[in-house]
Simulated scan of single mutants.
Amino acid sequence: MHRIVVLALPRFVLFDLAIPGQIFDGGLRDHAGGPRYDVSLCGLEPGLVESSAGVPIGVAHGIRALRAADTVIVPGKALPEEPVAPEILAELHAAHARGARIAAICTGAFVLAQAGLLDGRRATTHWANAARLAASYPEVRVDPEVLYVDDGEILTSAGVAAGIDLCLHMVRADHGVEVANHSARYTIVPPHRSGGQAQYIERPVPENVGGSLEVTRVWLTEQLHRPVSLADMAAHAHLAERTFTRRFRAETGISPLQWLQQRRLDHARRLLETTDATVDVVAARSGFPSTLALREHFRRVTGTTPGQYRSAFLTLSPPSS
Rank of each mutant, 00 (worst) to 15 (best):
M1R: 15
M1K: 04
R3T: 08
V6I: 09
V6A: 00
L7Y: 01
L17K: 01
I19K: 01
Q22Y: 06
G26E: 00
D30H: 07
D30Q: 06
G43H: 05
L48V: 09
E50N: 10
A53Y: 12
H61N: 12
H61M: 06
I63N: 13
I63W: 11
R67C: 07
A69N: 04
T71A: 06
V72H: 03
G76A: 12
L79I: 13
L79Y: 14
E81Y: 14
E82L: 07
E87W: 11
A95L: 01
V111K: 01
L112Y: 05
Q114G: 07
Q114I: 02
L117D: 10
W127C: 09
W127F: 13
R132M: 10
L133R: 05
A134P: 09
S136T: 11
Y137T: 04
Y137C: 07
R141G: 14
E145L: 08
V149Q: 04
D151R: 02
S157Y: 05
A158E: 03
G159Q: 04
A161N: 12
I164Y: 10
A173I: 03
V179S: 04
S183G: 12
A184T: 08
H192T: 04
S194E: 03
G196T: 04
A198C: 09
Q199P: 08
I201T: 12
E202M: 15
E202Y: 14
P204N: 15
V205S: 14
V205T: 13
R217E: 10
V218Y: 12
W219Y: 11
T221Y: 11
E222G: 11
V228F: 14
S229P: 14
L230R: 14
A234L: 06
A234V: 09
E241S: 10
T243M: 14
T245C: 07
T245D: 05
R246G: 02
S255R: 07
P256I: 07
R264K: 13
D266K: 15
A268D: 05
A268E: 03
R269E: 08
R270A: 10
L271H: 05
L272N: 02
D280R: 08
S286T: 06
G287T: 05
T305C: 08
Q308A: 06
Q308S: 10
L314P: 02
L314F: 14
S317N: 09
S320T: 08
